[in-house]
Design a protein around this nucleic acid. Structure first.
Lengths: 215, 215, 215, 215
DNA sequence: CATGAATGAGCATTCATTCAT
DNA sequence: CATGAATGAATGCTCATTCAT
């Protein structure tokens, strides 16, 4: 009864991908609840009822979107984890750069991933939340390792700093507006910012850089 | 027209504030569109219709919430701007600390402020967006000043770094879960992370720690 | 339990009459259903709840209003019926003049009387409808009498003409806008129009007046 | 936005017209505000929500109804204005007859037109009010012309008499109850009544019939 | 595949009325 | 008399989803 989306090779799933793309954009712009099936159908130039040839449920459409992002993020993680011969902080730099690049190349999907995950069914939500925690653990572990070899500041909580790193990465999808050439530059800046932010020798108020003209 | 909220001093508008608090919580948890007036009324133990003694519109309720946050943020900005005798980077540290403290003391209101602002009426939305840009300009200017006196890295875009600073601050409201005693600690960590992240001499990949002037 | 409106003499029922007046105006302007108790209370400068010291029910308020008009109309009818020594058509002229005068002196109450009667409870509605039919019979009878003595056209239905007479009278309350001095003039014009309209020798298409320059 | 009503000719919009007809009847019987969408849906045997396939708004439904009447009235006016070789008073007779016929053939739509116009949006209301004034001017002008050629009484205000003519016409839609064969008769009676009512030599009180030139 | 009428549950909002203070 | 918080039923409207054609 349920509608199968499994295409068997020769029929190109063009329309299908288009539905996902339009949904990603609208969900990002107006939010999942703020987007109606009518909106999506209008954008595709078909009728609301016809949408159900491509999807089974609005919630399932959201799931497929988020599932895609989750898969991509997993890929980055795997790549970064398996890159040979890197010190923890360098591995973190690579991780930040890769993540930001990905965020900037499809900011809408990322925004949906972070903002609308809680609209999924309880079970799917739980699964993804669990995955996200593994993702966090990966970064916290890298920071801890960097703290142990003296590269990262030992005086600040690894967990809190991990959140700061996530913040830096995730937020890019929010303020960035499709300037494709700038992607690399932004990724580098973020990476440098994060690495410097994690580095040893925290600055406290009044503790100015010796390079500064403060007396 | 509209509900007269002008209390004459001695009768505390208890229920009124309660409505705002419940709405803030629910809007933060389920989103503005995901929260129904029924939900809010249920939480308050009154009927849906009775809610309209305290508010005129769901949208206006959101506005009052966001207006409150906007006012608080303005206060922090004014305080930071007028603190005497601080170098730009120190002023930024103060700014981050104050903002994070505020975010952590009422994370729900902050989350609503950043996530639901676009659900406001066009005019109100425009006004707040404009104010937010002034807020951004304040931070970008501080960073530029720090770049000029050599305290902040000149090799990275002030605008992009400003976004990183915002990210660090805003995201705290998202992952923090009401551990009151931890507030100060988190604020300090964030501030240190940001300041280090902005500081001169960005680390590039492979640029290990011993190159830094840390002792 | 129900609220008594019977004032016992010494306390002037000023506020009470004011409520009726305001209600008449608002019901006429916006319709019975288009007027809220809040509207009436606002206009009186009191709170919605306080209104219920003066009335028991919105519907009862309407009833009191309509009851008043009904009483006044009955008075006119009695006066016209008892005026001595008038031919039927002259009696009709008197009737029209008196009715129009009354309509113009309180057009709002009349408008309410004709437009909102069907919003009354079934029983009250039936009673007033019955009274109105007696009123109609009175006019139809006068027209029939005029037809029999040759003063009114025998070629047209007395019942239809009676409706035309009512139309002329009632409609004045709708288009008239409070030009007090004009009342008499309008009443005379209407009366003359009606009497001429009823008179013998109907004009048919092409049957021009001999005074007209038609060839 | 809004519901696409553009039918391409061959498929008759049966249900659509049915909605309009039912709405006209109910609005006439219970008033616009006294009629709920539920009432209309019940009468059509569909669910309340399904109604919104045919209309976009209750107010827009009212507008379409009134727009239709307005169009029909405009047609009558054009026909009457362009009928060749008629004296002013004869043109008025034609006008009254045509209008009454129309009123009696669809009394509900007419009742809605006159009673509920003020429930329309400000802009639509203004437009129709303006059109109605043009309509009034047309009749006043005809009466004035009749006064000048001596066919209509010069002793009574053309404007007031025009209102009396409107009254006679409009009221028919209120008291008439769908006796189809009677339409012509009623239209003739009204027309004759109006023409006689307008004619020269007003009767004053006590001015009995023998003074008139009737044989 | 596509259509579009229909469903049915749900939502924000209104409003006459009550009642403890 | 007056207040104003509360009620509870109803209203116009939305929207994801279904299904016969």
């Amino acid at each position: 009864m349920g509608i199968r989306r499994a295409r068997n090779g020769n029929t190109p799933p063009r329309r299908d991908a288009e539905v996902l793309a339009v949904a990603a954009r609208l969900f990002a712009e107006r939010g999942y609840l703020g987007t109606t099936m009518q909106d999506i159908a209008d954008e595709l130039g078909i009728l609301k009822g016809s949408l159900y040839h491509y999807i089974s449920t609005k919630e399932h459409l959201l799931f497929r979107l988020i599932e895609g992002v989750h898969h991509d993020v997993g890929q980055v993680l795997a790549d970064v984890a398996s890159a040979p011969g890197l010190l923890p902080l360098d591995r973190l730099a690579l991780y930040v750069e890769r993540q930001v690049q990905q965020n900037l190349s499809a900011p809408q999907r990322i925004a949906v991933y972070y903002d609308e995950m809680d609209k999924l069914q309880a079970e799917r939500h739980r699964f993804l939340l669990c995955e996200r925690r593994r993702h966090q653990a990966f970064v916290v572990d890298l920071i801890s390792a960097a703290q142990q070899d003296g590269a990262a500041s030992r005086e600040r909580s690894a967990r809190v700093m991990a959140h700061c790193v996530f913040a830096t990465i995730i937020w890019t999808a929010r303020w960035h507006r499709s300037d494709a050439t700038a992607r690399d530059r932004i990724a580098k800046v973020c990476s440098a910012y994060v690495i410097a932010g994690l580095s040893a020798r925290p600055r406290s108020l009044g503790d100015t850089d010796e390079a500064s003209p403060a007396g």
